[in-house]
Design a protein around this nucleic acid. Structure first.
Lengths: 199, 199
DNA sequence: TTTCCTTTTTGACATATGTCAAAAAAGCCA
DNA sequence: TGGCTTTTTTGACATATGTCAAAAAGGAAA
């Protein structure tokens, strides 16, 4: 079974008709490292489900790149506002590793919503889950110190630290790379010493 | 017609059966200024649609209150994570003015989702819209300066500044009240002089 | 108006983080 | 291995914002 369909089916059961339509619609696509699936200013017409690899979304501010999200295996990637409202995207979406995805267009997805209420339910549930994750990130972002944000990342999503250059991570945390470096240096002596074990 | 039902119907048409069920289910409730509809630690079992009035969501950090959202007329208010996942809420929800709301319980809502695909569609669309708004706030929160955040608020949601004490707004913007006061003082001389016109 | 209470502003100083430049370390590959 | 590039760290200094305390301003009620 297509891995996305399996993931969805585990969240909420799909009829065999819905499964079949989904499988027929999803397109497999391989994106090379550094390649873009969306550029600032374009309208995002597709969703991507990551089977393997990772992506980042970023935009430019004062000449600097601001990375505001990462996507990994089992994540759904799109420029949300652009996809839903058909507006020009403010962000670039770039593969950080050569990645394997399953992709569906806006029109295909909405046809499935019309044909299969279970699919629309999955759409609703998925959106709710992403909302909750974003809300958590939001509270972190605005109301915790940089050190707290880094430590939370170390505790909750250490895989990000292992796969992504620190420059992107600093940007994601909303601090300069130098500040991130200093936060890491301080943490070294204490119990959170896993960084020292890298080979 | 119930104002929430009208708002929903304008987004996506509801069958008369669905409208009727909704109207039957929604409970009108008046909440006094300063009163809470949810306390930290409780599970949030209900959604509230604001017909008139306003609310804030806040939690405590280092002994201080952190306000992380406001809700006004036509907004839907709940502790999202708690409502969806039935977990203890980390936030308090408090009326900032005496408010009139329409309320529905989790079980009632999910019964409507089962009975009427149009209602579930509205649930999906509403969630998508709230996601987009939150994403915008997130990008603001983490990647703009306090002055930029304040000016954006002045441009996009001036009604908030007129209805809510500056202490709450400073907290919402992620800065101290003193810093907000200084930002406002600086803006005074320039074109954004609307604060000076207050009677 | 006068008093009282709340909200907002101002001042002095402390701290976190940013910026720019350079050094050090790590990764890559011929 | 040696040389080249990229990534990460370190240092010196600038700036934004926080904290605490007090003053000023604004609102409500007698």
């Amino acid at each position: 079974m297509n891995p996305l369909v399996k993931t969805l089916h585990d969240i909420h059961p799909l009829s065999s008709d819905a499964r079949e339509s989904l499988e027929k619609t999803l397109q497999k696509v391989v994106i090379e490292k550094e390649e873009f699936i969306l550029r600032e200013g374009q309208v995002c017409h597709r969703l991507f489900f990551i089977e393997a690899g990772c992506f980042r979304g970023y935009y430019h501010k004062d000449g600097k790149e601001i990375t505001h999200w990462f996507g990994f295996e089992k994540d759904i990637v799109t420029s949300f506002n652009s996809f839903i409202n058909k507006t020009a995207s403010i962000e670039h979406i770039q593969a950080l590793e050569t990645s394997v995805c399953w992709s569906i267009s806006y029109n295909e997805l909405y046809q499935l919503y019309d044909d299969f209420p279970e699919v629309e339910r999955l759409g609703r549930i998925t959106c709710e889950q992403y909302y909750i994750k974003l809300e958590d990130r939001y509270v972190n972002a605005q109301f915790q110190t940089a050190t707290e944000r880094y430590n939370k990342m170390l505790a909750n999503t250490p895989h990000i630290l292992q796969r992504i250059p620190l420059g992107h991570i600093a940007s994601y945390l909303g601090i300069s790379q130098e500040t991130l470096s200093r936060i890491r240096a301080k943490g070294m002596n204490s119990k959170n010493s896993e960084q020292t074990h890298r080979s």
